[in-house]
Nucleic acid binder design. Sequence first.
RNA 1: GGUCGCUUAGCUCAGUUGGUUAGAGCGCCACGUUGACAUCGUGGAGGUCACUGGUUCGAGUCCAGUAGCGACCACCA
Length: 1040
Amino acid sequence: MPIELPKQYDPKDVQPRWIEFWQKQHLFDANPNPAKKPHTIMIPLPNVTGALHMGHALNGTLQDLITRWRRMQGYEALWMPGTDHAGIATQAVVERRMLEEERKTRHDIGRESLVKRIWKWKNEYEVRILNQLKQLGASCDWRRTRFTLDDVCSAAVRKTFFKMFKDGFIFRGKRLVNWDAYLQTAVADDEVFHETVKGHFWTFTYPVAGTNETIAFSTTRPETMLGDTAVAVHPADERYAHLVGKMVRLPLDGREVPIIADAILVDRNLGTGVVKVTPAHDPNDYACGQRHKLQMINILNPDGTLNENASRWQGLDRYEARKQVVAEMEKLGHLVKIEDRDIEVAHSDRSKTPIEPYLSDQWFVKMETLAENAMNAVRTGKVRFYPGRYTKTYLDWLGEKRDWCISRQLWWGHRIPVWKHSLPSDPQLVQKLGDLDATIEKIRRAGDPAAKIEELLAARDALVGDSISVRSGFMAAKYGDDVAAQRIVDEKTGEMVILVCVQGDRPSVEADLNKFGFTQDPDVLDTWFSSALWPHATLGWPDETHNPPLNGEPDPSGHGKNTVLPYFYPGSVLITSRDIITLWVARMVITGLYNMGDVPFKHVHVHPKILDGFGQTMSKSKGNGVDPMDLFDKYGVDAVRFTITSFAGENQDVRLPVGYECPHCGDVIPQSLEHQTAKPGGGAKPRVKCPKCKNQSQFSSPWFEPDPGELVARVVSERFEYGRNFCNKLWNASRFAMLNLEGYSPGPIAESDLMLEDRWILSRLATTAKTINNQLGEYQFDAATRALRDFTWNEFCDWYVEMIKPRLRDPDRRPAAQRMLVGVLDTLLRLLSPFTPFLCEELWQRLGEIAPQRGLLEPQPAASACMIAAWPALPDGWRDSSLESRFERLQEIIVAVRNVRAMYRIEDKVELALHVRCQPDVAVQLNDVAGQFENLAKTVLKGVGLDVSRPGTSASFSLNDADGFIPLEGVVDREAELARQKKEAEKIRGFITGHQRKLSNESFVAKAPPEVVDQVRETLAGLEKQLASVADVVKQLGGD
RNA sequence: GGUCGCUUAGCUCAGUUGGUUAGAGCGCCACGUUGACAUCGUGGAGGUCACUGGUUCGAGUCCAGUAGCGACCACCA
């Protein structure tokens, strides 16, 4: 009994079944297997801030595609899933929501309670994100799902921090940071965006002390005058040369500060050529302050109000202070003018509030050597970028070697594992302790008996009393390698500060520290610190004795060793988007080299970004993110995968115009910028109005969930019809095959049974398979997708399937045709499986019911699942270019006949006759396939050979090596045919002229490669012959 | 400001080391539903390859410049 498939592919019926099947069969699991080569991809961990959008769908599809391809090739393919706690981003989302809904800030509810709320948010979105990936068909080893704050990742963070601390790569420093006064935290340079706002440009004067002169300067932030510690001019500026070295008196608080000369800070052609210098609140001024050893006065409190350094303006918000300071200066007669000006103001990407440059204590990673190593890894080709141009982005950024500020004044994240304690300022004591510590360390390193150390420690204790061996931070003797210490001097108080870093979770050590008055640093680490460790942390590093847990349970399979890490590390390829080459990719290379001594991955593929219909990148903050689930629902997962894969080329971002499908009438309403930014105002959800049926509906948006029970206008995009139509085409080709497999018996296909079309499709199949393989190896996803579509649609369906139909109806030739058909389909499904896994699995399983044994050219038992079937490797010997060109001639003739038929509006049921004038060898070949003219063009090949002449009233066409005539008694319109032929002749003449011009150009003949010249001659000869035939026909028709 | 891309048919995009007549999908026009598929078939129309100059026998392709668009980095007292 033939299996009857529905006429249309129904993805919703298919997808859930195979997700479950694959999972149950453990086909996504990857375990160390010495018999196989590993292939490892680490997911670019999505933030738990919100649901995934199309950018993630593309990223996920490409990773899945490569993973599935490698798995079929026989690799032990691991795709490691997980999510990122995304420190600032997540805390900001939760805080913002809390403020909007409850009018509360984190300070109202406290650290513990806020963190609890964030965990709740995280749990919700993690589930949602992982589910989106599962729906996509992502073949991740879900047992290994990690989260950057889980125990496994935390252990790696603690270990890395400790190691860097001990090795001196982590240090405490005062730096000018981007201060977010709303969130009260430093934010990274990367988390700052600039926005033009309307502002003012004030010009003031300062009186020069001891003279009658004043000096004029301009600023956009007058309140920072309270923190001025100098006024700078250009050293070569004659206008001010006599003032350098003098002092100015600040009218606001009466302080006197020097006039200095600084060629770097000052551009004498700008404004008045004078710059006020506020080292604590401006990056350039800070650098200048360092050069001139200026005092640095911080005038801000963490919340953006002015502090005790702001004299009588203390306590005011900085913007209020600005107004009052300006008024005061005006009152004192020091305001010269106010201009309106557009000012680019730095804003925090997280809170959207203006950034204040702010001097504060932060933790840093020293980048000098770490960056150099990471650069070398790329320079030497240990890590390779695809496309290669991104190498420059990476190297340029690392080349700056800017120290990495890793502390954040947040509550959500990895707490910095450092405890500190201050000792009173006493230079003598510090000196003595230092000497003693040095001695102890020397002895310890030399491996001398502990007793000796104890003695020295006792001496230390005697110096300052009360277990100072602990307090001093010199804890190695007591805790061995579990602790490391640094000693710094607080600039402000002059106190000696002991910083103790504890390796891993050591409750007893922490208890001791607390006992001796140490307090843990309240800050948390930059989220990139933990994500930088992702490639080795997820594999269990630094645990050498256990495999990382599976589904949260211990994995005993390592038998006392971590076998997972050495097997899967280093990874094979990282597939990501270009905006995190610096933030993430570079840092993973750094930590990989530092912790593992090897790069984290060999290739980095950077794929395009998906833009909206207006050319903007998709992001949550723009509100233009498209939920892939809407599209899965409308077009099916495979269609979405296939379509976005076809986008993924090497150099262009992809524009994806979308619309909303009206739930009332089905009309599509194009998305506008208003739709993207529409948010619920006063509780009511925004609606979109359908111009056709005039109904209004709520619509999909990243900003809000539509109300339950509402009819929702979902996102659609006609671009996905490309994928949907393709899936349906393959579905129906398979349907055709299955309908024609009745009586199928497996068996080898004899060479002698192979017809021209069989050899042709094998040749094309072998070529296509090889092409795809090469393209995937170069991450040319768009090309691979096109090649597969073209083969499937234009070769397999349009020609092969059509050509074997007669044989399937002929009992004698049917068995071989069936074997060929099912064999080709089998191979095709395997080639397509990484691209459209659900469709292929469904068809594979159904095919398995009818033809469990199949293959080219020998039958084999089919694999139990398409996704683990062997990747096709077809013999090179099947590729036959001369056969392919013979086949092309057949195609050309058939197209020409169809053309004539269309031209003269001759119905398909009317049979035509065809006469072909050609060389004897061509005649033999055409006679061999005579049946195909009947089959594909309803045309009988009447005469063929050199002696064929044009029958009376006939339409004709001319090919390179054949002229065709189709007698059309009473149908041919002589005038029309004449016009057609004349037009054809004109066209050929045009080409001929072009070729002749080339050949008559002496330098072309002399300088072009001989084979090129020969080719032109050959083509010209062919064209001339063709023209002669056409001219002959024109003559017969009575033309000239 | 620096860097890297992009500009090819109405739309979205391919175009491998320069070499016959520049391609695809969608859309458009005409015709077609007896058996895989109208999410389809057959045929067709549609492009001075952003602009200017250069290299070359030959440029969509290489080089320089101009304009527009985008991304990343840095920065605007």
